[in-house]
Write a protein that binds this DNA or RNA. Structure first.
Lengths: 248, 248
DNA sequence: CGATGAATTGACATTCTTCAAACTGTGTGG
DNA sequence: CCACACAGTTTGAAGAATGTCAATTCATCG
């Protein structure tokens, strides 16, 4: 039950374990959390703004994103979510969703009833605190994105999200040798950065020319991590990682 | 203890009471929370990025803001905070602060030890849930700001933050007759919107010309609330207000 | 092989920034 | 009561970043 390659492997448990050591009871409670697993295609909404869900969705594998729509139909992606994230955990305490969640790549998703989550939070306060903590880190990411979109331009803005993605992927062992699979389209980056797809394209070309990134298909390689970090002014503090090595 | 004009009036208790009815015990626990009150001048940091505070700050009166600094020294305000807000409540579960909090106007601030907050959360789970909920609303505000800064331009972007401010001020009875005191400088709006102060100035002139706002000194009047809401594409759902009338 | 989604290009328009200066209001000290 | 200082606001002109539109190319896949 602990290998990332085991089909029942639960990235949520692994994430919590990286924060503190679970007792047998706590681990048991997490492993027996009722969870309905679904496999979704890419570009499918998981939940929508306005929904009043009775369960939360845990991303088991694949890429998803949290987004909002402008009244004029423009989309803003406010964060990317990967394995181990629960992008709508907020719904536990806020009745109506103020954002949508959608897959980017095909995803395996686990739906966990609110009731079960409330229950485990009351019974195991450390787990409750850990969930709260997760939502606080989400908030920290949003704050960082406000700064990124508000203050950085072009190459720097793009470099910053790439840094964030790489560090978070590294934390779940999805980066090998400065290479990772990033099935995110230029249009999606545009929606995340507040740019036009055309502009994203040009920024990426610039970054390739500067030796900041190399791409082939959905594969991304970072030839010089320190340089990318510097260009993106990336300081991983806001991710509140416990294993600091993944951000080095 | 319940009048906003009583010196011991605690806007936090009032805020929680708007969400659910406190039991006598809960109310008692909140009223006896240890809190060290300080009076701060305007434009003073309350806590700084990198701090590892052992207490949280409750804004009792005045305007403050949460902000982050770019490596190049540019400031991004990621939210304004007013009476009843605890802008660094996150520090309860995240050891090191990834943002600063500073006053905008002179403020009365109450510092509450983390220990006392942890304690009350454990002893009164409904209060714990309410605090969690508050941090989730903060996150919702950050998300909305990402969208605002990323997708809206000029007048629309400014209109949106003004709408948010007015609604939140109305929720704590700081708006009368479509008029409120808004001691926020154009430079500060610039840092909040990702604009230049010069541009903010021009946007405000445009808005005055369009009849969207009227100003004299720090006093703001909204002649046509519906028009402002429409221009700012403002939908208050993300504020998760219980009293919906304040947003109408 | 054609179809589809994604990436790329070019020319041009717009929004926003930059810089540097002038103006306004308000409070303070002489 | 004037003069001055200070903080905030306003102005103008020129430039840079980004957006818009409309094609075109590329890659993958049934």
């Amino acid at each position: 039950m602990s290998s990332p390659f085991h089909p029942d492997y639960n990235p949520l448990i692994r994430k919590l374990e990286s924060v503190f050591t679970l007792t047998d009871d706590e681990r048991q409670a997490l492993e027996t959390l009722p969870m309905q697993v679904a496999v979704l295609k890419d570009h499918q909404d998981i939940v929508r703004e306005g929904d009043q869900p009775s369960r939360a969705c845990l991303i088991l594998s694949g890429f998803a994103c949290v987004y909002k729509m402008t009244a004029h139909g423009k989309r803003q992606i406010v964060s990317f979510t990967i394995a181990g994230d629960i992008p709508d955990l907020q719904s536990l305490h806020l009745k109506v969703l103020d954002n949508s969640v959608s897959t980017i790549s095909p995803c395996r998703v686990g739906f966990i009833p609110h009731e079960a989550l409330h229950d485990i939070c009351l019974r195991y306060p450390r787990i409750g605190a850990a969930f709260w903590r997760e939502t606080l880190i989400d908030a920290a990411i949003f704050r960082e994105w406000v700064m990124n979109v508000g203050q950085r331009e072009g190459v720097s803005r793009m470099a910053h999200v790439l840094c964030e993605l790489v560090v978070r992927l590294r934390a779940v062992d999805l980066v090998e040798d400065h290479v990772c699979d990033l099935p995110i389209t230029q249009v999606e980056f545009a929606d995340a950065l507040g740019f036009t797809p055309v502009h994203v394209n040009r920024v990426l070309q610039q970054m390739r020319a500067d030796g900041l990134i190399e791409t082939q298909g959905t594969r991304l390689r970072i030839p010089d991590w320190d340089k990318l970090k510097q260009v993106g002014e990336f300081d991983p503090t806001y991710l509140h990682l416990v294993r600091e090595d993944v951000a080095a």
